[in-house]
Write a protein that binds this DNA or RNA. Structure first.
Lengths: 336, 336
DNA sequence: CTGAAAGCGCTTACAG
DNA sequence: CTGAAAGCGCTTACAG
């Protein structure tokens, strides 16, 4: 199997044409006769030639690599999200002749990303998360690296793509209110994450759209520990809350644990909802009402956008993808 | 910020030396005067020159990329494992001047890996999982790509590194038996995974080492659905099983759900153990007895091995890493 | 339609 | 110790 790698020069020599011609036959650029073209292509096919992408890149000042910026300080609940994004991105990139190079960043160091950029190993990048103070994003901007952000940001200069968390959360919350919920609470994670803010906005939208709703609502943000959730849930129970909405499945899992401990029946005594359907709670009983996004598609589209930018095509500054509200057993039947 | 990239030629010209000299100053290879060396280095420092790794690679027939082969058809429970591996690998690679390029493969297609190899985008690869019939592994072997496998395989030709699942499971099972368990059952996933086989061996070791143990044991393999677990657990309960060991946290989660449904108390009525501590059950109550591995270290070491291979150093064919048995509330106190 | 030549940014024998 | 030159495997004006 260890055949020496063919080069464009070998082929040219073998076929008695110039390297230029071979190159043109392959790339399809420049004028070239049908005859010769076919002859070259046939030879290539037969001998399993495949061009050295690195050399090609050097000549064209490209790498055919895209940088995937992944947080190293992730929360376990986010993993399926990153994984699916990666899948979508990787698939599309591959289909378009690009490879994906990863850079793991943490809140206090982005050296891997810096390396990829200063070493000129990537043509562009995809950010898989957006923060309020986003060091990787700032770095990419400062260095003129084309990129798209998976997630939202107020900076309209950055090309961004996201699921429509706001509308999704608004719709789900609305269903709950319309279903008759009078006492509702929202538990969320770090406000540093833009997505937390968007989910909150959606939640608030539902009330704004229903000025006649006469119940009470409470919001707890920046929660990230099980014990905090515990305390909150206890408090809520003492106040006879009817529905606890969690911003993600991790928090929702904590809520469920606490309820289970206290032998509180879901949904009979309290209804439970998650704003994100990560399949982390997939086999929980009862099944949890939540919102579902097509994350692989999100990744695919993000990659598509980046490749368009690299091809110098115009792309929309902001792209929003759809969602699906999944009503399950953890909420009583409400009308939709 | 948009300064045009410096090249070795620019520096040579600026300093009135040859490109050869500049190259030598940077690489440290070949004889060069201390004086000139310092002069070049100073200039580089001052002007933030960083070499074009791709060009360097072309000249040296290297890419300074390592391929990370990731399964696309993962089970959610494996995600933290892959993530942590990636972290370890990525960190070390980065520190050594390498980048990590991902190839997602599924059981029926390895085209991304093929692309990376035929396009000569990687110098070597790391497999993050080993299967009995391992297509990616076979492909790498056939094409003479240096690689190390994270996980075990019977093929002693392949450089492999793994946690010592067998000993770990043996030790944990042993503790249970020594603690007085008389009726024990093991539930595991696909035998196609080598790790499943190794865990099973460890389990069996414990009995072999205790010929006087007079209890009964049962083994259920190739289980991957919650409903299957359900059926098994019901059967086991009817037989008054004392301890249910799961091979991973997903299965263990299923077991716990079933027990919870049937209002069976853990550990009072039945003890529960997981052979893998993925932090998926981290906030479960009661805390689950299990085995813990340092996965990031595993990734780091795997990468280290690969880089040694690329440097043509000798490496051991098989490396086994340690583990920690964590006795928690889900088992009654047993002596260790 | 085709080719000779220069160039992408490095490295590395070979000579001095 | 230093440099001119060829080479890594491609692309791409420029001429014909």
């Amino acid at each position: 199997m260890e055949e020496k790698n063919l080069t464009i020069g070998d082929i040219a020599q073998e076929l008695g044409v110039s390297k230029t011609t071979v190159s043109r036959a392959i790339s399809g650029k420049g004028r070239i006769g049908q005859q010769t073209r076919q002859r070259v292509l046939a030879y290539i096919e037969e001998h399993h030639y495949s061009p050295n992408v690195v050399a090609k890149g050097l000549a064209q000042n490209k790498t055919f690599n895209i940088g995937l910026v992944l947080p190293g300080d992730y929360n376990i609940v986010e993993l399926p999200f990153f994984q699916k994004c990666m899948m979508g991105i990787s698939r599309l990139a591959s289909a378009r002749g690009y490879d994906v190079l990863i850079s793991m960043v943490t809140s206090d160091q982005i050296t891997q990303l810096e390396r990829a950029v200063t070493n000129r190993k990537i043509d562009g990048a995809i950010l898989t998360r957006t923060l309020a103070e986003d060091a990787p994003m700032q770095y990419l901007k400062d260095n003129g690296v084309p990129f798209v952000a998976l997630g939202s940001t107020d900076d309209r200069q950055v090309i961004q793509i996201d699921n429509d968390h706001r509308s999704a959360c608004g719709e789900l919350t609305g269903s709950l209110l319309d279903g008759g919920i009078e006492k509702i609470a929202l538990i969320g994670g770090s406000e540093e994450y833009i997505v937390t803010r968007n989910r909150l906005r959606g939640f608030e939208d539902a009330f704004r759209e229903r000025p006649d709703w006469g119940g009470t609502r409470q919001v707890f943000l920046n929660i990230d520990k099980a014990c905090e959730v515990d305390t909150i849930v206890e408090k809520l129970l003492s106040e006879q809350v009817e529905c606890i909405v969690s911003m993600d499945d991790y928090l929702c899992g904590c809520v469920l644990n606490t309820l289970q401990q206290r032998q509180i029946a879901v949904p009979e005594q309290v209804q439970v909802v998650s704003f994100y359907d990560s399949s982390m709670l997939a086999n929980r009983i009862p099944a949890i009402t939540s919102i579902r996004f097509d994350v692989e598609e999100l990744g695919r589209k993000a990659c598509e956008l980046l490749l368009q930018i690299l091809d110098e095509e115009e792309v929309p500054a902001r792209t929003l993808l759809g969602y699906e509200v999944r009503m399950r057993e953890s909420t009583k039947s409400v009308r939709r």
